[in-house]
């Protein structure tokens, strides 16, 4: 990592976006006071992870990329025993577990083993476990990777609830819709450096246009990007499509037709964070 200069305010939901291998997880491990950093300064909750690691870790919650629940314990025991690692009393963790089971919608499965749970349930339990110490800061490393849409939306709703309760959250993701849903502010990372920073809406405004017109042609009738360049702010040629970035997609669509081009299909959509992301980090595979 080089020059990852960010500041996250209390109560804020902050995102690290980037392709695989961009350095998101490594950054998260340093913030979580697990990996040492070779240089630079880092303050978490006003303390230095190099000095006060255990004290910081006692006040944060960590949701790792891979679930690491204890398969030898039941759902409830996973919460209670994890709470005990924080030095919380038996009575406290017992009551807290009931509350968290409710939060994660796992009350009916409380005394089941962890193994037969679905991926979404395990993920919810991992998040619930990270809340056992009422953390002031929650670190979520790709919280919804591998979940079905229902499970993702339920998780987003729970994370939004935590935000309303004032829990600061730092999220890594490569799902742009997730970042748009959850983050107040985010940075896009690539190759260990920050390439852009802002709110989701601000980034779209800065790096993309309001709308995108996607055109598909037959190979014989396809115009080149240069043919259409004067019609839009930016034209991007993909193997199968032409993307025209403009404030008013319908207007550009009419102009394209007036210029005599006959696309097979045309789609006007709002610009998304995904357009920003692809523009900044490129379309080729990172690895």
């Amino acid at each position: 990592m080089r020059g990852i200069d960010v500041e996250v305010a209390p109560g804020e939901v902050f995102g690290f976006l980037g392709p695989n291998g961009a350095g998101k997880s490594s950054t998260m491990r340093m913030i979580a006071c697990v990996s040492p950093r070779s240089e630079g300064t880092l303050q978490v909750l006003g303390m230095d992870p190099g000095v006060d690691g255990p004290r910081i870790r006692a006040r944060i919650g960590v949701v790792p990329q891979q679930d690491n629940l204890d398969a030898e314990l039941t759902v409830r025991q996973n919460l209670e025993i994890y709470g005990r690692y924080f030095g919380l009393s038996r009575a406290h963790v017992r009551a807290k577990a009931v509350e968290l089971l409710e939060f994660a919608q796992l009350t009916e499965r409380a005394d089941d083993a962890v193994e037969p749970l679905s991926g979404g349930m395990k993920r919810r339990l991992t998040i619930a476990r990270a809340l056992v110490n009422d953390p002031e800061l929650l670190l979520l490393d790709e919280p919804t990777t591998g979940l079905d849409p229902q499970a993702r939306h339920l998780l987003w709703e729970r994370l939004y609830r935590l935000k309303r309760e004032g829990v600061t959250q730092i999220i890594t993701t490569h799902y742009m819709d997730e970042a748009e849903q959850l983050c107040d502010r985010l940075v896009v990372m690539d190759g260990g450096v920050i390439v852009a920073e802002g709110s989701p809406a601000g980034l779209i405004e800065r790096y993309s246009t309001r709308e995108v017109l996607e055109l598909r042609f037959t190979p014989e009738s396809a115009p080149t990007a240069a043919d259409l360049a004067h019609l839009a702010e930016r034209v991007e040629q993909l193997p199968d499509r032409l993307l025209l970035y403009a404030a008013d997609g319908e207007h550009v669509h009419r102009e394209v037709a007036r210029a005599g081009h006959r696309p097979l299909t045309a789609l006007v959509r709002r610009s998304s964070l995904e357009d920003v992301f692809l523009r900044l980090t490129g379309r080729s595979l990172a690895e």
Binding site: V34, P54, A58, N68, D70, Y85, R129, N133
Partner: peptide, 12 residues
Amino acid sequence: QRIYHAMTAGPL
């Protein structure tokens, strides 16, 4: 199971 990683994410 990676439970060690879970433990050291806390104060241990």
